[in-house]
Design a protein around this nucleic acid. Structure first.
Lengths: 139, 139
DNA sequence: ATCTAAATGCAAAAATTTCTCGTTTAGGGG
DNA sequence: CCCCTAAACGAGAAATTTTTGCATTTAGAT
């Protein structure tokens, strides 16, 4: 059983197959909108979009995933993962690339001391213009 | 005329009173949802919600504002400002505090070199549990 | 095997965001 | 100034995204 399932179980959540499937979909690494998750769920698993939203909210509250809004029109969700991946999106064409190594440990620690918050995770989104959009039209 | 208006003008956008009012509302510093902006617009200025969304998208595309999704259910928008303010939200009660000094210059520069993107701005959201929620219930 | 709170599916509602189209307006050129 | 035109706007409809209520199912404990 994965760490994430373990944590949910300890918190008293039941490990339903829907819940497992949602996590499994997210474990691929790419940020996904609720609809995307639906599309990735095993055909054998009956699941409804509202179940997905309900679970995404639970996962959010427990700091297991983060919500990011730069990509697409619907919010996307991704695992708060150990190797800390983030996104860099082009404001022109929407092309997005990922990166790791955000080196936040220091900032996080300072803030925890200053505020008394226990920081569970972070979302970092960078945006700008990709090489193509930069050379092309000015909009 | 502010830098932001200047930039919009140079890009060929007209400086309508609606556009000015939206920016003025955002200049207060707090992240605002589209509805919040509507509520803050001067009563003398006739404006429609769709105008607000249209302009938010323009401002986004031009890197003048960022969209953040941790707070509330609707997306919020805030100016990409010179002193670089970000938010730390409690997963329990939603209480949010702001902070500055995210020290990103180095990360940004490295990424620009590696990717060829021109990075216009970033959104950073931290989340966790505030002291009260930490001591209180476990959910 | 039984029981119960938690979770789900479904359908409907609510909330958010985009779009169409007719009208208005900013700002440039006489 | 006044005119002109592309850009922007308002209004309302439509599309999309997200939440909710309720009857039914199910995980996990006894």
């Amino acid at each position: 059983m994965t760490d994430r399932l373990q944590l949910l179980k300890e918190k008293g959540y039941k490990l339903t197959k829907q819940r497992r499937e949602i996590l499994r979909a997210l474990e691929e690494g790419t940020p996904l909108a609720a609809e995307d998750i639906l599309a990735k769920i095993n055909v054998k698993c009956r699941i409804n979009l509202s179940t997905i939203y309900r679970n995404l909210n639970i996962l959010l509250k427990n700091g297991l995933i983060r919500k990011i809004s730069t990509l697409g029109q619907a919010d996307c969700y991704e695992l708060v993962d150990p190797d800390c991946r983030h996104s860099l999106a082009c404001l022109g064409c929407g092309n997005t690339i990922g990166f790791s190594h955000c080196h936040f440990d220091q900032i996080v620690q300072e803030l925890e001391e200053q505020t008394g918050y226990e920081i569970r995770g972070h979302a970092l989104e960078l945006f700008g213009r990709c090489p193509a959009c930069r050379d092309g039209h000015s909009s």
